[in-house]
Design a protein around this nucleic acid. Sequence first.
DNA 1: TCAAAAGTGTTCTCCCTACACCCATGG
DNA 2: CCATGGGTGTAGGGAGAACACTTTTGA
Lengths: 230, 230
Amino acid sequence: MEENKYCYKYPHPAVTTDCVIFGFNGERLQVLLIERGIEPYKGKWALPGGFLKMDESAEECARRELKEETGLEGAYMEQFHTFSSPERDPRERVVTIGYFALIRQQEVKGGDDAAAAKWFPLDETPALAFDHDFILRKATQRLREQLHFQPIGFELLPEKFTLKELQSLYEAILGIHFDRRNFAKKMFHLEILTDIEETVWPTPKREAKLYKFNAKKYEELKFKGFKLEF
Amino acid sequence: MEENKYCYKYPHPAVTTDCVIFGFNGERLQVLLIERGIEPYKGKWALPGGFLKMDESAEECARRELKEETGLEGAYMEQFHTFSSPERDPRERVVTIGYFALIRQQEVKGGDDAAAAKWFPLDETPALAFDHDFILRKATQRLREQLHFQPIGFELLPEKFTLKELQSLYEAILGIHFDRRNFAKKMFHLEILTDIEETVWPTPKREAKLYKFNAKKYEELKFKGFKLEF
DNA sequence: TCAAAAGTGTTCTCCCTACACCCATGG
DNA sequence: CCATGGGTGTAGGGAGAACACTTTTGA
């Protein structure tokens, strides 16, 4: 028999990683989904994911997936939860380790499997295969939580951006609206923005300043967090 | 052959859960470790853990472990990270899902495996088996993070407690010192304490008021978090 | 009477919030 | 000249931080 040649004394679940790939189109938060070409759930949309190889860590596996779908390497990735309900896959027992990635949507040219991949606004996703709706909700929730305490988010913006774009991103992730002036004040106060003395014309009305983020300060805040309450 | 009767087309890692069980002795944060009776790492201290059964979720598995070690059910448990380095177990590829539990140390009578279990102050743990030092650090870090944003911690205290005990707990977890008056003010302001009009004599010097926590407010804060920055 | 533990209140500062005006451009 | 979008400043309130005195008891 060529089949079933990997044998163990006790039953082992299969282990996969699933990637929630977030992007931002300047207006709304989006997620990259792929259309399944095989059963089960053939034709349904799902999160990109794949089986863990025996010589790679889960993060390596997730990065491999990310590269296959988007061509990107070195993006921000974070493990957020592992899903292990015995019924989550109808074929066999599958435990999946969930990662989310934050990428600049405009840098995605389309990876190997790109034919079946598509961006969906986060609030307009179709019903997903397996328990991927649940996984997606959990990832979104985690992203929101992180945003309160860490300067996550720049990973989703182009290198140079306007204050308005940054604010739109925060508003899109958190689903709330900020006062322009107060938002700017807070960002300047955190000192994570560098005024690069360039401008663009995002609208025909008036030019807007461009910023980069201050990588040093950014990493520092990422490490110690925004708000050391207490 | 009786051995190796579970066979798969592709290699599968083994999956375990490991439990970081935190307790508080009124003074210091402690962690429950067990002494390994078998190779590898025989005689070394390790986190309690075990293999995932095919019909249980990871959380069920972790709760089963907790019960075996402490006799406790229904404790606060939270998944914090999954560890998947290919070299983390010398026997075979093992992916472990890490949970931490917060329990009232005084309620532990000692479970089935209690003979080999022992509490260690968090800053006096011996070198642990496998990558359990790393796992423990990660759990501690997560506990600290959580404490800033959620009213975690009451799970570690007896039902009735003094303000000083609560403060000591926070100080033990975060490793910093608070001003008594400001700490009390903050707690009262959060409205999670109920004055139960009882007193104790924690020291021979003077009596102290006892409090319970306000479960309703507690759950509410747990849900929405302390600090909705922005 | 002194040391140790616990209970309580005030002031100052800083940050967050709410809010309004000016300027530049294209139509 | 007016509508739109972007840039900037100020006044008020609330929460955190610093800080000191009183009470009780055992030694």
